[in-house]
C-alpha cells in the first residue's frame, strides 16, 4: 500500500470517527445539560460540549465541501 492510499484510508477513518464522536458529544452534552444535577459547572460543561459538537460538525461539513470542491476543480482542469 503506498503512502498516499494509507493517508487517504486514515482520513476516511478519521472522518467516520469524527461523525461518530459528533453523535456521542451531542448526546453527552445534552445529557449533562439536561441532567437533574444542581451543579452549575457540570451543566455548563454539557453546554460547552454541545457548542463544540455543533462547531465541529460545521467545520466537518464545510471541510468536506471545500475539499470536494477542490477535487472537482482539480479534476476538471
Amino acid at each position: 500500500m503506498d503512502i498516499e492510499a494509507l493517508i487517504n484510508d486514515l482520513t476516511n477513518r478519521v472522518v467516520i470517527a469524527a461523525w461518530a464522536l459528533f453523535m456521542l458529544s451531542w448526546a453527552i452534552g445534552w445529557l449533562l445539560k439536561g441532567s437533574p444535577i444542581p451543579i452549575y459547572r457540570v451543566k455548563r460543561f454539557g453546554q460547552d460540549i454541545v457548542e463544540d459538537a455543533i462547531l465541529g460538525a460545521f467545520w466537518l461539513a464545510v471541510g468536506t465541501s471545500i475539499f470536494a470542491l477542490i477535487k472537482y476543480i482539480a479534476s476538471s482542469t
Binding site: L10, A18, L21, G29, A53
Partner: peptide
C-alpha cells in the same frame, strides 16, 4: 508532484484530525 499529492492528503487528514479533536467530549 508526488510530494504535493501526499502533502495535500496530509492536509486533509490534518483538517479532519482537527475537527475530531474539536468533537472530543473531554474537558482537557
Amino acid at each position: 508532484d508526488e510530494f504535493l499529492i501526499i502533502a495535500y492528503s496530509l492536509a486533509i487528514l490534518t483538517y479532519y484530525l482537527g475537527v475530531l479533536i474539536y468533537l472530543l467530549p473531554i474537558p482537557v
